[in-house]
């Protein structure tokens, strides 16, 4: 077991290590234009500088804050709408086709409109996050509730549970793995879409730091920004996974496994 785990970690690190060595050697032998590919040492000192001055942290905090607020808005609206539609099946014929249309429009394409309507303040950026994360949360919650095993719901009937009790004690716990998977996908989307929004209209945030660096011709800062995005994207995903693993594995829940295979995004 232990050996296997170590082996997996080594395998995961192999390719990054190769890329890093090529980067180091190429820079040393001056194979790359240092304006296009800054040497590792330069990127490292820039990272240290941005950290020491608190610049990186300031941008990170702003970006995190936006993701947090945007995702909270998404979760409330998408979750509630999914519950309402799942419980009132007649409504779905009116609402789902429109949502299906909206789902195919990439939020980035809407940014110019959002800027016109909402300005370049926080609202337009939060809206981009909401648009980008709404569907994974909404669709996975909806399918989790709709795929609830009617045989288990009957158990609720047999023991005299009210409609409300059946929903909270049987339907919702059974849909939980699907809801969590939807949230996990949504969180990943929110991080990526936010950076996109900050590239276009912002005066702070990691995305802004990157676009500003482009204008200053500072590829080293761009690379620090890119690494930060990837690193914290992984970190968010990992933390969320650790927080929810218990619910996904609880009782070896069969639903968890099946939902992993038919997630919506």
């Amino acid at each position: 077991m232990f050996k296997q785990a170590v082996g997996r970690k080594l395998k995961a690190l192999l390719l990054p290590a190769v890329i890093f060595i090529i980067w180091c050697l190429g820079s040393k032998l001056q194979l790359f234009n240092s304006y296009l590919v800054p040497p590792p040492a330069k990127v490292f000192t820039t990272a240290l500088y941005l950290l020491k001055k608190g610049i990186l942290l300031r941008h990170l905090v702003v970006s995190f804050y936006r993701v947090f607020v945007g995702f909270a808005i998404t979760f409330l609206t998408a979750f509630l709408l999914a519950v309402i539609i799942a419980l009132n099946t007649k409504l779905s014929a009116y609402i789902l086709p429109l949502l299906e249309f909206i789902r195919h429009i990439p939020p980035i394409a809407l940014i110019p409109l959002l800027i016109l309507w909402l300005g370049i303040g926080e609202e337009s950026k939060l809206m981009v996050i909401v648009l980008a994360t709404f569907f994974p949360v909404f669709l996975n919650t909806l399918s989790g509730i709709n795929n609830c095993d009617p045989k288990l719901v009957e158990v609720g009937h047999v023991f005299g549970l009210s409609r409300r009790e059946r929903f909270f004690k049987i339907v919702l716990p059974q849909a939980l793995p699907a809801i969590i998977v939807g949230m996990q996908i949504g969180l990943g989307y929110s991080w990526r879409s936010l950076i996109g929004a900050e590239l276009i209209a912002a005066s702070s945030g990691i995305g802004y730091m990157i676009i500003e660096a482009e204008q200053l011709s500072r590829p080293d800062i761009i690379l620090v920004g890119v690494f930060t995005i990837g690193l914290f994207g992984c970190l968010i995903d990992y933390l969320f996974f650790k927080l929810t693993a218990h619910y996904l594995e609880r009782g070896n829940n069969q639903n968890a496994a099946s939902f992993k295979n038919k997630q919506f995004n």
């Binding site: 045989k151 288990l152 009957e154 158990v155 047999v158 023991f159 005299g160 049987i170 716990p173 059974q174 939980l176 609880r250 009782g251 070896n252 829940n253 069969q254 639903n255």
Partner: peptide, 18 residues
Amino acid sequence: VQRPAFVFQEARLLPWLT
């Protein structure tokens, strides 16, 4: 008796509860 209890052919336990 208000409602009878029912034991199904399959146990139908809730998988997320002990």
